[in-house]
């Protein structure tokens, strides 16, 4: 009797595991197309990072090239470029994070004052508009402002009786223009995220504060901002994780790759690209990319760890 049941159970278990195996197989087959693409376009390039430690010779191939270990890194870090592009990349990103978050926060708080639904929608649509423009289209817009003979900025300078400026060869100006463009392009997106956070706050909090005699500024400062504090921190840390990367279009396409602007526009991404197209030392360009990715990874892990400490539910992983 008991023997029968055990064999029956065994039978069921075998059939069940057969079914499970088949199901696992089917599910894996669904992953396959994406996994193949990820393997080719994400993991093979990671393998290519060994070139950072080699003196790449086209005729010898990737594996045949000689090992030089850390020479590529040494060469890059000894050059003056390393410091310049690293400082530029980080400095711009820090400015971007502060301006875009503060700007979006102010606009979101202001938007909360708008009662008319229609007006609100109109504002949001307009703020979002630059988000849909590609950098190559933006470069036409910027050109319309900065062109030497006909550009809007020189028109204004002329009317004020001042000398026109050669905008595409004044690096000083671009240190200001680039953050403005970044703010302009991202404000709609960030504003909507913050606004969604603010309308999620319990309105009785404002009512209570208003009865206690708080003015609008106090309400914004003491209630709104702290209430969406976790959201602000999360947005900031997401951006901190990318502090070693920059938007290539903003730094290369919009300034028209003008050589005289490099001191203000050269960031790690544009430096690597330029080295690639001018046929620079392959080993060194790979090494720079490796340095960028590795520091980026550390920053993501660090910022995620910080978020976790700060508020568990907002951590990315």
């Amino acid at each position: 009797m008991s023997k029968v049941t055990t064999t029956a159970k065994k039978e069921i278990r075998i059939r069940h595991s057969k079914y499970e195996n088949k199901r696992t197989f089917v599910l894996l087959s669904m992953c396959l197309p994406a996994l193949i693409l990820i393997f080719i376009f994400n993991y093979i390039p990671m393998g290519g990072l060994i070139l950072a430690f080699k003196n790449y010779d086209y005729s010898k191939g990737i594996f045949g090239s000689d090992w030089v270990w850390f020479d590529n890194f040494k060469f890059f870090f000894k050059s003056q470029d390393a410091l310049r592009v690293t400082v530029n990349t980080i400095a711009y990103n820090v400015v971007f994070i502060i301006t875009s978050l503060v700007g979006a926060l102010i606009i979101a708080v202001f938007l909360y004052e708008v009662r008319s639904k229609k007006l609100l929608k109109t504002y949001q649509t307009m703020y979002f508009f630059p988000y849909f423009l590609s950098w190559s289209v933006v470069s036409f817009i910027v050109f319309s402002f900065m062109e030497y003979d006909y550009g809007i900025l020189n028109n204004i300078l002329e009317k004020l009786g001042m000398e026109p400026i050669l905008w595409y060869s004044e690096p000083k100006c671009w240190r200001f223009i680039i953050p403005v463009l970044n703010l302009w392009k991202t404000i709609g997106y960030n504003t909507i995220v913050f606004y969604a956070g603010i309308i999620g706050i319990d309105p009785t909090l404002y009512e209570a504060a208003a009865i206690d005699g708080a003015n609008k500024y106090q309400i914004a400062r003491r209630i709104m901002v702290p209430q969406i504090g976790a959201l602000i921190v999360m947005m900031a840390l997401l951006k901190v994780g990318k502090i070693f990367h920059s938007d290539f279009g903003l730094f290369y396409i919009v300034p028209l790759n003008a050589g005289s602007l490099y001191s203000a526009t050269d960031v790690i991404d544009t430096y690597v690209y330029r080295a690639l197209v001018t046929g620079g030392d392959t080993g060194m360009t790979v090494a720079i990319g490796f340095y960028q990715s590795l520091v980026g990874l550390c920053l993501v892990l660090l910022s995620n760890w910080l978020v976790k400490k700060f508020s568990e539910e907002n951590a990315m992983f």
Partner: peptide
């Protein structure tokens, strides 16, 4: 069964990449 492994394979691409030059050579 392979949920964890597949998720990690996907997720890791969000954290780390080979950079421009290896992709270009590929």
């Amino acid at each position: 069964r392979y949920k964890k492994q597949v998720t990690f394979i996907v997720f890791f691409t969000m954290l780390f990449n080979g950079g421009l030059v290896p992709s270009y050579m590929l």
